[in-house]
Computed example of a mutant assay.
Amino acid sequence: MELKAFNIAFAGLKVGQHQFEYEVDNTFFENFGFEEFNSSSLAVTAVLDKRTTIMDLKLTAHGVVNVNCDVTNEPFDLPVEVDMDLVIKFGEEFNDENIELLILPHGEYQFNISQYVYEMIVLSIPQKRVHPGVEDGTLDSEVLDKLDELSVAAPEEKETEQVDPRWDALKKLKTDNN
């Protein structure tokens, strides 16, 4: 998938809202060197609200990415539902340092949203990816069986703990000074 498809040529657009649709899969992420998804299928919508001196862009993405579980290494489909707002202004020079503001040089006629789409989707994926079957106990996996087998049981509390009487004397000093 070529990233040119994510260029939005706003110069010829009338004032008002304009909607752009994109289908994103693994070839899109490969352009950024990102290969953590087994597969991906996402629908991205960009709504550009063009006004005379400023533009607002609302990006939304929904779909699924197939990733491996961090506990069992089993692949599973992780749902993605994310959105992002961006304000586009015009200034002396290009500046995209602020995540919510893009400044384009005067005379510019288009901008590319691929970097914003990429970051929005990748940052929406949780750091720890756990198969839903692990959380609800329905996943039958050799890895989970082995983890249960190797887990150490919590030590049982002793009902009557022997406390050195010297500690009681120190605690008394602490409460006497208050």
Rank of each mutant, 00 (worst) to 15 (best):
E108N: 10
V15K: 12
N31L: 10
N26W: 01
P165I: 05
E30D: 12
Q110L: 10
F29P: 10
G107M: 06
A9H: 14
K171D: 07
N7T: 08
Y22A: 12
G63R: 02
G16V: 07
E157D: 07
V24P: 08
I88M: 06
N177K: 15
F32M: 06
L86R: 08
E93N: 13
S114F: 03
W167D: 06
V15G: 01
V24N: 06
K89S: 14
S41N: 14
L78T: 09
T138C: 04
D136A: 03
A46Q: 09
H131M: 10
F10K: 07
M120E: 06
Q115K: 09
E35W: 00
E93V: 15
S40V: 07
L102F: 11
N26K: 11
P75V: 03
K171A: 14
T175Q: 11
Q127T: 15
V134F: 05
F28E: 04
E35V: 13
F20H: 13
E97T: 11
V163L: 15
N38P: 01
T175W: 04
F94R: 11
T60R: 10
E159G: 03
F34D: 11
D96S: 14
E36A: 12
D148Q: 06
K4W: 01
Q162H: 04
K172V: 00
Q19W: 04
E135H: 03
D25P: 02
L123H: 00
L144P: 01
K50V: 07
E21V: 11
Q162S: 04
Q110V: 00
Y116D: 13
P75T: 00
L104C: 08
S39M: 09
V67W: 12
V117G: 07
K14I: 03
D85H: 05
H131E: 09
D56A: 14
T53N: 15
L101G: 01
G107K: 02
V44R: 02
L123V: 03
N66S: 15
T53W: 03
S39C: 04
K172A: 11
L102A: 10
V24R: 09
E100N: 12
F28Y: 10
E159V: 06
V44A: 04
E161M: 11
D148E: 09
V24L: 12
K174G: 00
A153K: 03
V82Q: 05
V163H: 11
E36P: 00
Q110M: 12
L147Q: 05
S41V: 04
L147Y: 01
L102R: 07
E161Y: 05
P75R: 08
L104F: 04
A11Y: 13
I121L: 08
M84T: 07
C69D: 14
E142I: 08
I88L: 10
E108V: 02
D164H: 02
T160C: 00
F28H: 03
D96Y: 03
L144D: 05
V71R: 15
D136F: 01
